[in-house]
Design a protein around this nucleic acid. Structure first.
Lengths: 205, 205
DNA sequence: GCACCTTTGTGAGCGCGCTCATTTTTACAT
DNA sequence: ATGTAAAAATGAGCGCGCTCACAAAGGTGC
């Protein structure tokens, strides 16, 4: 059976929608792939023609939210922001879009955005990292930074970003003041670092 | 059957030893609990009287290595080090002890040291975090720092530490120059931050 | 309308980590 | 020695994510 591209995308979207509902209602680990298949009205095996793994389903939602956050960030930019302000705005809009997914983010990001090297990483996690870092790189370029020592600065930025994501994921307080303070501090620390103002240390000459 | 405490510890040690060998030889994910049971000469179910999960077995090894690293750190201290030098020495000795476990660290630390909140976290991972942070806290106190804003500074330190661990875990180069540079940079960044030298930013007055 | 081929759907079943009802083994009181 | 109860070992089996051999369902040439 050959099916139209439209019907295929419709089926894919229905699976994703039902998966999102179940993840939000019960959590990622408490939702089985058989549950999702049942809710979407397909056989258990059929889902895996559309998504190679349960993890991929969740990270597809995450990447879409992040991408829309970055789009919104670009429209909100006024050009008068400092580097710190732009990074704060970027992360803020990303988090706003991630908000509906927050009830089930923990296990998903733990698996897919881990900084630790693995044999079989979920490719969507790698995509998320690359696209966020590319956006940050563009912001830095706009402000005249060329990010010396790419590996080192990139790794440290990503560590801080993951720390922010993790803290925010667990921050259930009303207005998330703690998260805002943490983001502020992390961004300032990072900008300070790439400004070359962090000097000295055990092995500096 | 009631067994002597000695025999119990011996059995526990044999399971841990065989598990370590298999993890190192094939990797964590490629080693099944049935493999370990067979190698240790016990039934599949028996292992779970000694360790509640496969993950716990691995993190037990990690925590032991980290603890011995911290012991060695204390003996190596000469009292003349700067804060940066002490932190560098601490992390260096920890990593040296972790070295034999490095072939299978990735999946283990990804699961157990994740900064993301989870329902059923491996308690050994929490132990690792607390004991390392306690050691860092003592070092900071020795140098006259009281770590203002405990949540923020602690979270950022832990993010940087995880970044270091992750980078080092994947760093197969001969003398690990890249890792040394990263550790240097991360420590300097952190010390700069807690020194209160990081100021300004989008929401500072 | 019919045979043919490709794409898509299907669900039994695999291997995994882990559980639990049952059996076996031991220390100890007698 | 013997009986007893608790501790420890056992392995069949569960539920999970995921695979794969096969069936069903279109589009295409005649």
């Amino acid at each position: 059976m050959r099916i139209s591209e439209q019907a295929k995308q419709l089926c894919r979207a229905r699976i994703l929608e039902k998966a999102a509902e179940l993840f939000a209602a019960r959590g990622f680990d408490q939702t089985t792939t058989r549950d999702i298949a049942l809710a979407a009205g397909v056989a258990a095996g059929t889902m895996f023609n559309y998504f190679p793994s349960k993890e991929t389903m969740a990270m597809t939602m995450v990447n879409e939210a992040l991408a829309r956050g970055r789009e919104e960030f670009l429209t909100r930019l006024e050009g008068s922001e400092s580097l710190e302000e732009e990074l704060f705005l970027l992360i803020g809009t990303e988090l706003r879009r991630l908000r509906p997914l927050r009830p089930f983010l923990g296990p998903v990001l733990e698996r897919s955005l881990s900084p630790f090297p693995r044999k079989s990483v979920c490719p969507e996690g790698e995509t998320a990292r690359q696209e966020h870092l590319e956006c940050v790189r563009q912001i830095m370029q706009r402000h005249g930074f060329s990010a010396p020592r790419e590996d080192v600065a990139g790794t440290i930025y990503w560590s801080l970003y993951l720390g922010i994501l993790a803290f925010w994921t667990g921050d259930d307080s009303e207005n998330q003041e703690a998260s805002r303070a943490l983001i502020d501090y992390a961004i300032r620390t990072f900008v300070q670092m790439i400004s070359g103002n962090v000097q000295g240390g055990p092995h500096a000459r």
